[in-house]
Design a protein around this nucleic acid. Sequence first.
DNA 1: TATAACGCCGTACGTTGTACGACGTACATA
DNA 2: TATGTACGTCGTACAACGTACGGCGTTATA
Lengths: 250, 250
Amino acid sequence: MIPGLGGKLPRSLIDLLWRDHPEAPTGGTRGPRARVSTGDVVDAAIRLADAHGLPAVTIRRLAEALEVSTMSIYTHVNSRDDLLVLMADATHGRMERSRFGRLGWRGRVQRVAESNLALLQAHPWLHEIDDDRTALGPGTIAKYDHELAALAPLDLAPVTCDAALTFLLDFVRASARALRPNPRSGELAQHWPEWSLRLETYLGEDFPLARTVGAAAGAAMGAAHSPSMAWDFGLARVLDALAALAPPRA
Amino acid sequence: MIPGLGGKLPRSLIDLLWRDHPEAPTGGTRGPRARVSTGDVVDAAIRLADAHGLPAVTIRRLAEALEVSTMSIYTHVNSRDDLLVLMADATHGRMERSRFGRLGWRGRVQRVAESNLALLQAHPWLHEIDDDRTALGPGTIAKYDHELAALAPLDLAPVTCDAALTFLLDFVRASARALRPNPRSGELAQHWPEWSLRLETYLGEDFPLARTVGAAAGAAMGAAHSPSMAWDFGLARVLDALAALAPPRA
DNA sequence: TATAACGCCGTACGTTGTACGACGTACATA
DNA sequence: TATGTACGTCGTACAACGTACGGCGTTATA
């Protein structure tokens, strides 16, 4: 390496994800001691997101919360995108993972579904993070391992087991998304009296099915509507679907 | 209304969504003829998104594409958020909706699934639009009506029918999301040789299941992996699940 | 002919992520 | 003990974003 040019290479996302692992590179010991750690940054970001949503997680606000300058954040995290991955993996890692004990496969599946729902309700901003690299983190891998174990009694081929888990979790994610209180619901409710009238006019005689079911309006208005019903319905369907795969009795 | 103060109220999103309906307010006829219409703006935005992704849809670029000034865009669209709703509804409206004919319910369900998959593959940016107000648009309602009709042979109660459709479409959305080529896959593939080694080190003896199934690494690397298998698996499971609901023979 | 409604646009503000380079500190080596 | 190098910190600056505001000119209506 050419001396005089500061050797720049930052710790890669992988190493940041596994920063608590004994084999992870610690970084040299010179220079002033770091006033905050990567973990501190991630924790503060999670607190911000929990309290005010993901858009509130800006580098500047983070720095303010940690009482450091804006640019210091980049010493501990390579970019905002990377930070989001670290946040998601950290919350995955903190999920409760209790033993399944003697629970049958249905009970296990239900438990996996419910704990994922709880996760997404506790941290709704997870919906807005869509980065495959999250799968590289220790928290996400531990979660994956645990949930695969839940499906073990079904005795499926590995790939099928993975597919089944994906199927289950995709359902949970979608339901959780629908269940989530919409930030725009206030505005919608405010304009609803006016808008529903217009909609009535526009719909006219068309779309008989849509009108009958009424979900177009219902969903839009945030009325009682289905999302919580969709959860029960969907979970029952997932169980049905897996049952069709399972050994006769388990 | 107080004269001298320009009466400001802009056409609301509802009216913009239904701009082609005969009952929709046309806006006064004074002033210079508009050089572009709301429809033009929406179309240009869709073209931009198709070509370069949703982040490329900025007001400035839109204006440039339409050869108008930046701020003129706001004459035809109230905000960027509204524009996204208009874009989503327009593409919903343009979906092909062929008759189901004598197709059985399985064939219908499959067709609905496939056409939604095709939609999301043709316009991947739809994944990034998450706004309930889309449900108020004519395209979205027409789509909804058509897809409810597909499920009619199942002879379900209205709410159940809605729930079943939601279940199906949520599956399709999640699968389409996984199927979508990740923009970050390039970077990931580039660093993969290095990262996979580290990951190997970190994993050590832990997470036996995750290692066996190998999907953690597989998914991350963008290898062949499951998404296309997940589609087949999932669709079969959805059909199983609905079959458990359906009348014995249909 | 006067008025009011309307489309168009230039300017400007606040906010974002982050590149760059300077500065000082603390350890490693000579 | 003296020197060099690695490292944390931070101020400044830039490009890009959405969009509020207000002025201007055009056109149909009163």
